[in-house]
Design a protein around this nucleic acid. Structure first.
Length: 724
DNA sequence: TTAGGGTTAG
């Protein structure tokens, strides 16, 4: 151990020279470098073929560790008629339930016809433990209907079920019952209410319950801190944690884990780690895993990795945390690499790990990686829960990798689909410009699932991308009328987009002015985008005035307005906007294009000369540009804002990252294969024109994903119909 | 007979 600590010390010093004060004042995360494995003991099996004596009955039931053994005890109870005793029967129901035989537990419970709240509580808990939340709520309602009084034990189970279902309305009703039956001062009931309101995004109510509690336990503090982290009240969570310590309440493991989820600053993370160590959690693997995630969230992916490397017996959460940390830090290759390493150690991924790696793959938009991860989800499908979420994520992944065919295959093969599955597929069609398919699927969905606000965003955006104005209006009008879904700003933005793209700019403006809620930057930004498509400078100036105040830190707004000026030849105004952007300290996001060839990912920036094939790429680029020029290509120099000669402007367009990546694809992939590229920003207008012609002269299909949608280039045309 | 409860990292 001594030797390993020395190694760890060197590693930390190597990571960050300013941390050389270690070990006199070690970095708090250093205490988490090595976890101790926990030793588990196996319980003994108890079998009882003999008739039972009453005094041994309960202890035997409790010792059963398998369904088989509890059935044997049950058989003995039947022989001794002990099952007629409610106390023994309740024990039996509880044991069946905890061993996973919920249906057996329920049939025993039903046969008792008891009005004793005790056995009802056991059964309600059984349903909650087996994630059958609706059934537990139903049982609670039946209990009330039969006039059986719920007690202080009943409420925590029912409230927990409301929390899992995010059923705020029923949660409020149960809270009323809590008051009516006089349990609103019970610490367990209050703690449950804090969690439930936290999960239902009603932090104010969580806090109200917490503040009004006559007495609080450490769990009360842990739960309110958890409610803070769930509702983005991280500062409040931290300040409650420090208040709790000032009140001399000793934190538990859950307190530390919950407060770690609140930290977003390295200094806070360091302070929490010190408290964790002081309270004896320096060898707790759960705390190590949480600390790993905390430092990653604070932007210290290096410290997260050193904690990860220091954990000798990595569990699934350790791996998943690090994979997710890389995925969140926009380091998809590292995330995927770690996932492969985890698989090589024969550790089966669960749904959370798969969802993290799927997210990394969708950032990369790599079809090969997507296919490989999809294969793993099929192979391990029987071993993890939440299959539905993983399959929906796989659909989204294929959509983002440009393959609607595979996305639809996964969709069609699914045994169950929820609203997320349908919305993912509908928005997938929309992103690829297939509005009619999206619209048909939306209508198909309505017969099995009620659309929610996200499903409406998916269909409205699909309609706008495909120019389906009448269908868009029909969907929008049906929101409140048929489904009781109140439009939010994102729905209004979709409608503005729908009208704006169709050239109905005045109608779009009038629509915004009649909005019953305040239009946000998203709504105005959409109208500005429409102004660019239809070169309406007057309206653009009016919109931009609002937008540059409303969303002054968004570089995209400045770039869009300056492009509108530039495309109308107003170079001075274009430069003025760029200067305003610089003066306000807003930095332009630099563009890059990614292409994957033979399982390797290549990134190109504008004028990139870093690739070993640079000479070949540029000579091929010249050749391709000559070919498309013969097809009528003229460079659209409005997309270059630099004050340089016309010829230089042309050259600057030639070396845009999109063109470099496409040429690299032409050089290095099979002549029949589809070239798939991904741009981090919106595709440049000149590159869009050039790519259409490249697809024609080279007879290659090119699929480009940009920040907003997909473009399928084939035989000189694009699926977006030149509106994007 | 005294069986049943709240928090917990990704």
């Amino acid at each position: 151990m001594q030797c390993r600590e020395t190694l760890g010390l060197r590693f930390m010093q190597k990571l960050k020279p300013e941390r050389c004060w270690f070990p006199r004042r070690p970095h708090p995360s250093c205490r988490f470098l090595w976890a101790q494995p926990e030793i588990q003991t196996q319980p003994q099996e108890i079998f009882s073929p003999q008739p039972l004596e009453a005094d041994t009955c309960v202890s035997l039931i409790k010792q059963c560790s398998s369904r088989r053994s509890v059935k044997m005890v049950h058989a003995s109870m039947l022989r001794s008629h002990l099952h007629l005793n409610l106390y023994f029967l309740t024990n039996l129901v509880s044991q069946y339930s905890s061993l996973g035989s919920i249906s057996y537990a329920y049939s025993l419970f039903s046969s008792s016809h008891s009005s004793d709240p005790f056995i009802w509580n056991v059964m309600i808990r059984g349903f909650v433990d087996h994630a059958q939340y609706h059934r537990s709520i139903l049982l609670y309602s039946q209990m009330l209907e039969l006039g059986i009084r719920p007690n202080n034990y009943t409420f925590p189970f029912v409230i927990k079920a409301c929390g899992f279902l995010r059923d705020f309305k029923f949660g409020i009703q149960v809270h009323d019952d809590v008051v009516e039956f006089g349990y609103d001062s019970d610490v367990f009931v209050c703690n449950s209410l804090i969690v439930m309101y936290g999960k239902c995004e009603s932090y104010e109510l969580s806090r109200q319950v917490f503040d009004r509690m006559p007495e609080r336990t450490v769990t009360s503090w842990s739960t309110i801190i958890r409610a803070c982290s769930l509702n983005g009240r991280c500062e409040e969570g931290l300040s409650l944690f420090w208040r709790m310590l000032r009140e001399d309440i000793k934190p538990e493991r859950a307190t530390i884990l919950n407060v770690m989820a609140c930290a977003h600053r390295e200094s806070d993370a360091d302070d929490i780690c010190r408290v964790a160590v002081l309270n004896g959690f320096d060898f707790d693997q759960c705390v190590h895993n949480a600390a790993l995630g905390m430092y990653a969230r604070c932007g210290r992916i290096d410290l997260a990795r050193s904690i990860f490397d220091g954990i000798s017996n990595k569990d699934l959460v350790t791996w998943a945390s690090m994979i997710d940390a890389y995925a969140q830090a926009d380091l998809p290759l590292e995330a995927i690499g770690l996932f492969k390493q985890m698989n090589s150690q024969r550790l089966l991924p669960d749904s959370i790990t798969l969802l993290s790696v799927i997210q990394a793959c969708s950032v990369l938009a790599s079809f090969q990686h997507a296919h490989a991860v999809h294969g793993i989800t099929i192979l391990t499908g029987g071993f993890f829960n939440n299959q539905l979420a993983v399959e929906s994520a796989v659909i989204d992944l294929y959509v983002k990798c440009g393959s609607l065919t595979y996305a639809r295959k996964v969709f069609d093969r699914m045994q169950n689909r929820n609203i997320i599955t349908w919305s993912t597929m509908i928005s997938g069609y929309g992103m690829h410009g297939l509005g009619r398919e999206a619209y048909n699927l939306f209508n198909q969905m309505k017969s099995s699932v009620k659309p929610d606000h996200i499903a409406f965003v998916s269909i409205l955006s699909a309609c706008s991308h495909a120019g389906l104005v009448a269908e868009g209006w029909e969907c929008f009008n049906s929101m409140v009328r048929d489904f009781g879904v109140t439009p939010r700003t994102e729905h209004y933005a979709c409608m503005v987009d729908l009208l704006g793209r169709a050239g109905k700019l005045d109608e779009a403006r009038g629509f915004i002015e009649r909005m019953p809620i305040r239009p946000d930057a998203g709504v105005w930004g959409t109208l500005l985008g429409a102004c660019r498509i239809h070169s309406n400078i007057d309206l653009a100036e009016m919109v931009a005035k609002k937008l540059l105040d409303l969303d002054s830190k968004n570089p995209g707004r400045y770039i869009l307005l300056s492009n509108i000026y530039a495309s109308s030849g107003k170079t001075k105004e274009a430069h003025k906007i760029r200067t305003l952007m610089t003066n306000r300290g807003v930095r332009k996001i630099s563009g890059h294009t990614i292409i994957e060839i033979k399982n390797k990912v290549y990134t190109f920036s504008a004028g990139d000369m870093s690739h070993p094939q640079t000479d070949l790429i540029y000579s091929e680029l010249e050749r391709v540009m000559d070919m498309i020029r013969l097809e009528g290509y003229t460079p659209d120099i409005n997309f270059v804002l630099h004050d340089v000669e016309e010829e230089t402007k042309e050259r600057m367009l030639y070396v845009h990252s999109e063109k470099l990546a496409i040429v690299f694809g032409l050089l290095n992939s099979g002549s029949q294969s589809v070239i798939r590229i991904r741009k981090n920003l919106r595709i440049c207008g000149d590159c869009h024109t050039a790519t259409k012609l490249i697809s024609k002269v080279t007879r290659r299909e090119i699929v480009a994903r940009d920040a907003r949608r997909f473009h399928h280039f084939k035989d000189g045309t694009c699926s977006c119909g030149d509106y994007w």
